[in-house]
């Protein structure tokens, strides 16, 4: 370190030094980093349990230095339910892609939300199946080309993209819902605050907390990381607006 300078930011302790396998510019990496910054700041490393999915983030347990459990494809919400019910003092999160949470795992997701299970969903919505070769997801935008919708998503045949934040906000026992992104430093800072808020609400046992990351997939969108930010701004945010969809009523401290 240079003399006369002080350290103001370094890689979070709870993010292992292991090189993550994600493609350059992929928000899976950013989400891991921010998640572990929150864990470090709240000092909850020893009592945090994550559930990782099937999808690109299947190896999340190799990177996050907290207790992790792998779930079968789509079943992370059911596994997180079990963990949180047995160990209610732990901070539990599921980490799931859109194929995982909103296609094969829709039943588990909706019922966990309806029951108000007291864990946090970290939902990575990149509008595509990243890991398996860029197939259409339930969240693929209208007209968006993927390997299984080469002429663009046709709502006449497959319906419109699912808006999970808007859907889960309807459940009475869901306490907090926010859609965030990492396309700019300002949005990344908001995203970090959102994850922190979700964990704090979970620790107060107020109900299900749900964070959707409007994410990217430069590799399967077949663009550069920079172009993926433009796609988010021009196509994703107009359909999937960022912001808070639900929060607990303000109580006097």
């Amino acid at each position: 370190m240079k003399e006369g300078y002080e350290l103001i930011y370094k890689r979070p302790e709870s993010l292992l030094q292991t090189r993550m396998h994600y493609c350059p510019g992929c928000f899976h990496s950013t989400t891991h980093k921010i998640l572990m910054e929150v864990v470090d700041e709240l000092g909850i490393k020893e009592k945090t349990v994550g559930v990782c999915p099937v999808g690109c983030s299947v190896f999340a347990y190799d990177y996050l230095d907290v207790d992790m459990q792998e779930a079968a494809h789509g079943r992370a919400a059911a596994v997180a339910t079990g963990i949180k019910r047995i160990l209610p003092d732990r901070v539990v999160f599921s980490y799931q892609g859109d194929g995982d949470l909103a296609a094969i795992g829709t039943a588990e997701t909706l019922h966990a939300c309806n029951r108000g299970e007291n864990f946090t969903f970290i939902f990575i919505n990149n509008g595509i199946y990243g890991m398996t070769g860029g197939q259409m997801a339930p969240t693929t935008l209208e007209g968006q080309k993927t390997s299984t919708s080469p002429y663009g998503r046709d709502p006449e045949k497959v319906g419109l993209p699912l808006k999970m934040c808007e859907i889960v906000s309807q459940f009475k026992r869901v306490a907090f819902v926010q859609r965030v992104s990492f396309n700019t430093p300002a949005n990344a800072r908001k995203a970090k605050k959102a994850i922190k808020t979700a964990f704090e609400i979970q620790m107060k046992k107020l109900g299900t907390t749900f964070i959707e990351v409007a994410s990217n997939c430069p590799s399967q969108w077949k663009c550069t990381p920079e172009e993926s930010l433009d796609w988010l701004t021009n196509h994703v945010f107009p359909y999937y607006p960022l912001g808070v969809f639900k929060e607990p009523p303000k109580t006097k401290e």
Binding site: L7, T30, K33
Partner: peptide, 11 residues
């Protein structure tokens, strides 16, 4: 803040 891979240290 933006670096996905936490490769940057700031002083």
């Amino acid at each position: 803040v933006i670096c996905p891979d936490a490769a940057i240290t700031v002083y």
